[in-house]
Design a protein around this nucleic acid. Structure first.
Length: 440
RNA sequence: GCCCCGAUAGUGUAGUGGCCUAACAUAGAGCCCUGUCGAGGCUCUGCCUCGGGUUCAAAUCCCGAUCGGGGCGCCA
């Protein structure tokens, strides 16, 4: 039998009475002198292995109970019903006691996997390979995988083509955030802050609907539970829309599908995180920015000016108001044109066809219908203090037939944090890049 | 960019001028234990971020450095 054919913990019941091979991390070895209990963990659970000195002999018994915790071991034993756990199975390591250490772990561990003392997030991230051995941490990334696939499935089922745009960009930028400069041979270049300008260019091609699972780089020195300097998002753009409402309908459908899929496919992961997931009803409420400002100001807790964006505090207050009405997801729409990026479509009354999707007071999406009239677009650039010359390769795509279009960026890290109720976005990212962390 | 805070065994904490040659838990080493399952019992190992200063006396107070945490702004 090969290692790849090893029996996983969850399948032990199908092999009752048989001699099988199992392998995994030696979580613990409880030596009681003449009988020992080895706990061997694989990705599906922890198997108890019973080893008896009388049957194995002193030498084998010592070899079996000797390895350090978290060593990788493989062993053969006979599956039997556990004498202690109802409905559970364990392995009896019977003679000759086949037991191999595939990789010995050093001691002490830099981070305990099942220790009774909790470690700081900082220590956990420094030793992420150990941290992810914990089932409750593994659950985050299994669920994230399901969430992303559900999103991508939804988009492709709705006619979206998955694309990949450059992460290295030239000097021109959409503004709004600091960029990381990189050396590009004899030229200056930057890491992309978003695929915005590229996915819009695709609207001039006839692909009509594109989506990218994109990584963004933002050189902002923020230090909060919800910000990272390297983030991952769904970036979608769709052509031939009548208004931003078409984009919002698509987006809320995608989010609903992601929540529903996670609820259906991840009961074990949700249970490990103690999360009771509620799938939000459709449609999500739409709250025009002006109304949102009125509502939060009416509480007396904050003061937001009509033309300003909601502060973090105001966002939280609105989240509480909406939660009280039973809405965890909601759109804030019709932002004042002045506080949105240059490519946003602004109507004659000064409001923009833009929106944010919020979950319990946290922004998870920003989107809009885009300005597809190149003259108005150039005027918008100048209003924002940007030089149209710097955007020539972008603007060119608008001069030869550009349909009305719109799109959004949907943050995957934040979505994962929110679906699980994590208190820090770093929990939802394997190797987060924040203000100070570039290793591991 | 602005503001606040922290640093004590591998890990998580207590100690905030002398009672500290620093404590507790957990981990690690050794011994005992034939059904443990947060296994248990006994013994042992291991810590004040760095550099200045104040003081009779500094883990403790002050200054600086380094590393880190958090809030705002900005955004996903």
């Amino acid at each position: 039998m090969h290692l790849r054919d090893r029996v996983l913990h969850r399948d032990l019941g199908q092999h009752a009475g048989q001699r099988v091979l199992i392998a995994g991390w030696l979580q613990d070895a409880r030596d009681q002198g003449k009988i020992a209990f080895l706990l061997v963990r694989d990705r599906t659970g922890v198997t108890q292995v019973v080893a008896k000195k009388q049957e194995l002999g002193d030498e084998r018994y010592k070899a079996v109970t000797g390895p350090n915790r978290e060593s990788v071991v493989a062993l053969r034993g006979t599956v039997q019903a556990s004498k202690a756990k109802a409905g559970g199975y364990e392995l009896v390591l019977d003679p000759p006691g086949e037991f191999d250490v595939l990789s010995a772990a050093e001691a002490p561990l830099p981070l305990g996997v099942v220790d009774k003392v909790a470690a700081d997030l900082e220590t956990r991230l420094d030793n992420r390979f150990m941290d992810v051995r914990k089932p409750e941490v593994q659950a985050i990334f299994r669920l994230r995988s399901v969430l992303v696939k559900a999103g991508l499935d939804y988009f492709t089922q709705h006619g979206f083509t998955q694309i990949h745009t450059p992460r290295i960009i030239g000097a021109s930028s959409e503004g709004g955030t600091e960029l990381y400069p990189v050396k590009y041979f004899e030229k200056d270049a930057f890491l992309a802050q978003s695929p915005q300008l590229y996915k819009q260019a695709m609207m001039a091609t006839g692909l009509d609907r594109v989506v990218e699972v994109a990584t963004y780089f933002r050189a902002e020195k923020h230090n909060t539970y919800r910000h990272l300097n390297e983030i991952t998002a769904f970036d979608a753009e769709m052509a031939f829309i009548d208004s931003e409402e078409d984009v919002m309908t698509l987006l809320e459908g995608a989010v609903h599908h992601m929540w529903k899929t996670v609820a259906e496919q991840c009961p074990a992961e949700l249970a490990l995180r103690n999360v009771q997931l509620t799938v939000p009803g459709l449609p999500f409420p739409r709250i025009p920015h002006a109304h949102a400002v009125e509502r939060v100001n009416a509480t007396g807790k904050v003061s937001v000016k009509p033309d300003d964006d909601l502060s973090t505090e105001a966002e939280r207050v609105l989240g509480e108001l909406m939660a009280a009405e039973g809405h965890i997801f909601y759109f804030i729409t019709k932002y004042p044109g002045g506080i949105r990026p240059f490519y946003t479509y602004v109507d004659a009354d000064g409001t923009s066809r833009s929106f944010d999707l919020e979950h319990k007071g946290l922004e998870v999406t920003s989107g809009a219908q885009r300005q597809h009239d190149v003259d108005k677009l150039e005027a918008r650039l100048r209003e924002k203090g940007l030089d149209p010359k710097d955007f020539e390769s972008y603007l060119k795509a608008f001069r030869f037939g550009m349909p009305p279009h719109g799109g959004f960026g949907l943050g995957i890290d934040r979505l994962t944090m929110e679906v699980l109720g994590l208190d820090n976005v770093r929990e939802a990212v394997l190797f987060p890049r924040d203000r100070t962390r570039i290793s591991p």
